[in-house]
């Protein structure tokens, strides 16, 4: 039996930017956005990348799509060596790997109607004839609840409708991978729910999805796997439907009101979270200040954590039931 390749396979990817100052004479600084991340997205899987602003989620997701080049490391999409391919070689595959932008309004053409947006996408990227594109575009818009809004311009639509147009464009292409960068930012809780239902409910069966978010409720509800990022590294990987986060930083991220307010200072050596870590304060002899914790595999295969003082114990009944 041939093995089905993973939709995305990221191996030890590093990205360093040179960020210039506001003025030509300002000093430029090196920013380590992503510092060695491994990630696999299997067909039909939704993986959430969560973390605070500046943790490297967006950079990682852009590298997956080839919108940024990694400084080192390898990225494979559908078994092809994506990170070593030239743009010309990537071009025929690009249609299968789609991006849902954070700001829907700026991604839409202010002079095109909802229907025109989707028709143009199908004609340009799938090479469909005008009549076929129109039939398919209408079908997708109806499926996303925009059946009565074919002729609406972006400015005449609500935030949720604008999001749905970006989703309709992407989903009508039956992609193999969708990378959604905060698809629900700026929307209200009930609208968030509807947009995610539209996105994930209409994904092709074998398609993978990378969901970048800092809404923990979204990750909990919609993702099969969740990667918590801090300072460019993955510090915990878990299935939120089976386990609860155990890394002190993940716990803070998921329950910000239950823990002391962090100083927000990240340490350059050892564990980046040591300054605000209550567990390290209680166990000062632990090696957190000197050695960087590795993402260790546990007996519970879907849960990995990078913490010298972390214990994986919380396994919910779902796994027990499935056995």
């Amino acid at each position: 039996m041939t093995k089905i390749p993973a939709v995305v396979e990221v191996k030890n990817v590093i990205k360093t930017f040179v960020q210039s100052g506001a003025f030509p004479w300002s000093d430029s600084v090196n920013v380590h956005a992503v510092r060695g991340v491994d990630l696999v997205v299997k067909p039909g899987e939704v993986v959430a990348l969560v973390g605070q602003s500046g943790s490297g989620k967006t950079t990682l997701s852009r590298m997956i799509l080839g919108l940024e080049e990694p400084s080192s490391g390898a990225i494979q999409l559908g078994g092809s060596p994506w990170s070593t391919m030239s743009e010309r070689e990537r071009h025929p595959y690009r249609v299968d790997y789609q991006y849902v932008p954070q700001d829907a309004m700026s991604a839409l053409d202010p002079q095109q109607t909802a229907l025109e947006h989707v028709i143009e996408t199908l004609k340009a990227l799938r090479g469909q004839s005008s009549s076929d594109a129109e039939i398919n575009a209408k079908e997708m818009l109806v499926r996303l609840g925009l059946g009565e809004r074919f002729g609406a311009l972006p400015r005449e639509m609500s935030g949720g409708e604008q999001r749905r147009i970006t989703l309709a464009r992407v989903l009508s292409l039956t992609p193999k991978l969708v990378v959604a960068d905060e698809p629900t930012s700026g929307l209200e809780p009930d609208r968030r729910e509807a947009v995610l239902r539209d996105l994930i409910g209409n994904l092709p069966e074998e398609a993978g999805c990378v969901l970048v978010t800092h809404d923990m409720g979204v990750a909990r509800k919609w993702a099969h796997r969740c990667l918590v990022m801090l300072d460019g590294r993955v510090i915990e990987e878990l299935d939120l439907r089976q386990s609860e986060p155990v890394h002190p930083y993940s716990q803070l991220l998921f329950h910000p009101w239950d823990y002391p307010v962090p100083e927000g200072e990240l340490s350059a050596s050892g564990c980046p979270f040591q300054v605000d870590c209550t567990r390290f304060k209680e166990n000062p002899e632990a090696p957190c200040a000197t050695s960087l914790p590795e993402l260790t595999k546990s007996t519970h295969k879907s849960h990995r954590v990078a913490c010298h003082l972390g214990e994986i114990s919380a396994t919910l009944s779902s796994e027990v039931n499935s056995n």
Partner: peptide, 14 residues
């Protein structure tokens, strides 16, 4: 809190 992550939201609200 618009556009802020949960930790920053708590910080700015407090």
């Amino acid at each position: 809190e618009t556009g802020l992550d949960p930790v920053l939201t708590r910080g700015i609200t407090e």
